[in-house]
Design a protein around this nucleic acid. Sequence first.
DNA 1: CGTTACTGCGTAGACGATACGCAGAACTAG
DNA 2: CTAGTTCTGCGTATCGTCTACGCAGTAACG
Lengths: 253, 253
Amino acid sequence: MEPTDDDTATALPLAIEVAWGLRGRAAKGPRPGLTVAGIVDAAVRVADAEGLAAVSMGRVARELGAATMALYRYVGAKDELLTLMVDAAYGAPPRVAEPGGYWRDGLAGWARAERAALHRHPWILQVPISGPPVTPHALAWMEQGLRCLAGTGLTEAEKMSVILLVTGYVRNEALLGVQIAEAARAAGREPGQIMPDYRRLLTRLTDPDRFPALHAVIAAGVLDRDDDPDDEFDFGLDRVLDGVAALVRTRTA
Amino acid sequence: MEPTDDDTATALPLAIEVAWGLRGRAAKGPRPGLTVAGIVDAAVRVADAEGLAAVSMGRVARELGAATMALYRYVGAKDELLTLMVDAAYGAPPRVAEPGGYWRDGLAGWARAERAALHRHPWILQVPISGPPVTPHALAWMEQGLRCLAGTGLTEAEKMSVILLVTGYVRNEALLGVQIAEAARAAGREPGQIMPDYRRLLTRLTDPDRFPALHAVIAAGVLDRDDDPDDEFDFGLDRVLDGVAALVRTRTA
DNA sequence: CGTTACTGCGTAGACGATACGCAGAACTAG
DNA sequence: CTAGTTCTGCGTATCGTCTACGCAGTAACG
């Protein structure tokens, strides 16, 4: 029988249902030798140590002392594994939204916590996109973010937009950091040396007449040394939250 | 002889030097049958039509009627090709920064233009990160963005941060759009049906007691139908630019 | 006309995802 | 206790990918 529209619409990949605790052990058959959580942990371990590119089904299986194909009893495809790896790497969100707390402090803490998670597991940013969040931790993070905005008078739609805006900012900022670290690794240099190299490269490539604004930046010494990433992050976050604050004011007044 | 520090620091992949016009035709030897630009165009064509996953060296070569290995005379590795594909897909930036124009209009136009490019070539967002921008169009976009901020009184470092902030917002917003479209494609449904499906899924997965803020969003009907993506984009952009405006005010006053 | 530098590209190796199906284990019904 | 059922681990095999290597042919130069 064909699955109904409703079934396909709310159908989840096997391993993700397991992550939500929607599947128990099978009544019959041999005891499973592995667990979804164990597989995901092993995969995260590999990604942390050797990068996302090293995460192949075979490599993860070897990590567990299992055969490659054994994993496919637990995970329908590699995509599922990646989705669950991201969920595991985020972990449970911090409790930042105290009832009665100032929304801005809560949201800033939430953003910083996400940033910390991305710095712990930079490969998260390389996982290809698959769809809207459906894993337990991902939704828990969303919940925490929304709670920060409880007392603001924003509409629910606006709250969601703000959450998306902030998380987008954090991800993008972290992405830039990873790009620089990646470039440093590829060139075999210390992270602190990358910006001067980049400045030299830009100076060689770009003509001051055709790139005046860029050369003004270079001349001002902006690329002479790496900025403190924390300062850079806080600067942008303040801009974003200022923008949100402007909206909150219109709703409060 | 070992390359000096300076050489490695400013060394560029072969094909990217070609893109900057830093390499002429070789004096001797047979006439090249292909060009870097032609290869990149073919790859972009494949990505547009069949997605980034379809872009393999072999597939691109077939598109050109050449052999797989022929491409490696022009690009050192697949990464280089991807970088150049992104550059080609962005194309030349629009001229949004009129001298004497209001910075906010210019920056909004710049953001919208980038968004349009990402919508034309959604696979850009799936290209793995490699490093800071070094291709001609990428730097031209940066130049245009910086020019918008000419009259604002911001420091050069602040201008750069603002540009990064805005481009980050645009990329993130486009990413969300692509995720939704991707989910729609994977589920074989019309784009307009995705949000109701998602709402059903969340309702099934999350307990209202443990996810009260999320359920408030659901109850408010936020996920009942797809928002107009343009409205959603403009909302977030206004927030970001409001934040920038607050900074500009402190520098002007 | 040799020399030389460069071209196209065939061959081949290493690796990755994953469909398929078998052998055997664990549980249940009788 | 036994037979049947259902699930597990995983070997085998297919197909696709990137790319190192090196040969043979070609165009320009001296």
